[in-house]
Design a protein around this nucleic acid. Structure first.
Length: 421
RNA sequence: GGAGAGAUGGCAGAGUGGUCGAAUGCACUGGUCUUGAAAACCAGCGUACAGCAAUGUACCGGGGGUUCGAAUCCCUCUCUCUCCGCCA
């Protein structure tokens, strides 16, 4: 969420920037500021009343000690009166603070100046394209058929034990998955990220911290008996490592492999065939916490890093800058990576690298001390490096030959085989 | 799952109803001293909100209660430790 002082100081600019996200923020911003005025006024009042109470309580202490019981009893009556008043004021204050919060959380993050307006993913800007689309064999198959043909993934078995969207990998198919995870992690570690293996389940505080709640309640698996959530991405546990902290040294660079769980309510059809969209999938994430001055430079470095990984996998891909209409609620600037999956003749999103500026930090209370010793909000960034299923799909489809699938060379040390037949 | 103990500032650790936002030690920052460093000594040293400031308010695991007054008493939740049980 945005900081109230930003809303005050840069009101006009925030409202006009949010138009790029097709969001009319004027009413919300105005009512947030008005509500904050109310908040300030009422805090003044409650502070006053509490101050009086504190003073009286201290006096009573002294009176009792010196044996002036009658005088003390008088003051008690006075204090009880003030207390009644202050209790009312404080409950009103709490109500106002809640209202203020509920307004502010509805305002999306402000897009970066490089973001263009647009309505949907159709309007995203394609910045770069790398690699050549493969020449497919005559009877090329989509990955879900290849997976079955070569006994790599058993979708039906997943249906049986869990439900659709929960594939079972087996044999070389399972090993390829594990190889990709190790490869991605090693690439990230070599780039200076520290590896973590967090829990796949988090509490509500964490879900609020990174903004998944209350926004995406229906998208997540919720374990009601223990009030825990299955993580939709490693971003949630890892970024929340730093909830309520004041960091001393930049940058903080973390990478983590986790399974990711998404209900994907409402999805159906050919877009979700095979590995295209799953309820459970594997992803390796990179999370970085930065000084505000460096965050955009860092974003570019992260983009380069993901590019290098995709190049090593010899997959054709393109980098896309999301337009305002497609940019997420929390992001200021996002680059998507799409690999070309030949048999489907589709570009599949495999990574999303974003700068959230201080939007997450504000909620997380993630700060650092500036040169004057004042607390400032950090910037948070994250990206997939990389999500597995669609990479997997593209590898199968693009590298199929008559009677087998070729494994890219970089993976051979991980898979210990160079093809699947 | 059963029984018990506990949760206090960056860390260690005192404080069981009244100048406690919190002793003390360590760490950290600045200064004195020194050619330099160490030691010693002096000073500073939590977060947030309001205020130009002085200052005020809140926070001693979370939430609620008792009281004129709560770190301290009561309820509740969470977590940690010890012992027993169970177990990959």
């Amino acid at each position: 969420m945005l900081h109230i002082s930003d809303l005050r100081n840069n009101k006009e600019q925030i409202i006009s920037s949010l138009k790029i996200k097709n969001f009319d923020a004027e009413n919300l911003v105005n009512s947030a500021i008005a509500k904050d005025d109310e908040r300030k006024a009422i805090q003044q009042k409650s502070d006053d009343l509490l101050s009086q109470q504190n003073k009286i309580a201290k006096e009573i202490g002294v009176l009792y000690k010196t044996g002036k019981v009658e005088k003390a009893n008088d003051l008690k009556q006075q204090s009880i009166k003030i207390k009644k008043e202050s209790q009312e004021i404080i409950s009103l204050q709490n109500k106002i603070e809640e209202e203020l919060l509920s307004i502010i959380v509805q305002i999306p993050n402000v897009p970066h100046q490089s973001v263009v307006k647009g309505n949907s993913d159709q309007d995203n800007e394609i910045l770069n394209e790398f690699g050549d689309k493969p020449n497919l064999i005559k009877d090329a198959l989509p990955h879900w058929e290849l997976a079955e043909k070569y006994n790599l993934i058993d979708f039906k078995l997943g249906n049986k034990i869990t439900g659709s969207g929960f594939p079972v990998f087996k044999g070389k198919g399972a090993k390829l998955q594990r190889a990709l995870i190790s490869f991605f992690l090693d690439e990230n570690i070599n780039a200076g990220y520290e590896e973590y293996l967090p829990p796949s389940v988090v509490n509500t505080d964490s879900m609020f911290g990174t903004g998944a709640l209350p926004d995406k309640e229906g998208q997540m698996y919720h374990i009601t008996s223990d009030d825990l959530y299955l993580i939709p991405t490693a971003e949630v546990p890892v970024t929340n490592f730093y909830r309520d902290t004041i960091v001393k040294d930049f940058p903080i660079k973390c990478t983590a492999y986790t399974p990711c769980f998404r209900r994907e309510a409402g999805s159906y059809g050919k877009d979700v065939r095979g590995l295209n969209r799953l309820h459970q999938f594997d992803k390796v994430e990179i999370v970085q916490i930065e000084h505000p001055e460096n965050s955009y430079e860092t974003l570019e470095i992260m983009v380069d890093h993901v590019s290098e990984i995709l190049k090593k996998l010899e997959l054709p891909f393109r980098i896309v800058r999301l337009c305002g209409g497609d940019l997420s609620f929390t992001s200021s600037l996002t680059y998507d990576f799409e690999v070309y999956s030949a048999a489907q003749d589709r570009w599949l999103e495999v990574s999303s690298v974003s700068n959230f500026e201080s939007f997450q930090s504000n909620r997380l209370k993630l700060r650092f001390k500036d040169e004057n010793g004042k607390s400032q909000l950090c910037h948070t960034l994250n990206g997939s490096a990389i999500a597995l299923p669609r990479i997997y799909a593209a590898l199968l489809e693009n590298n199929q030959f008559d009677g087998g699938i070729k494994i890219p060379e970089i993976l051979h040390t991980y898979t210990t085989f160079d093809s699947i037949t």
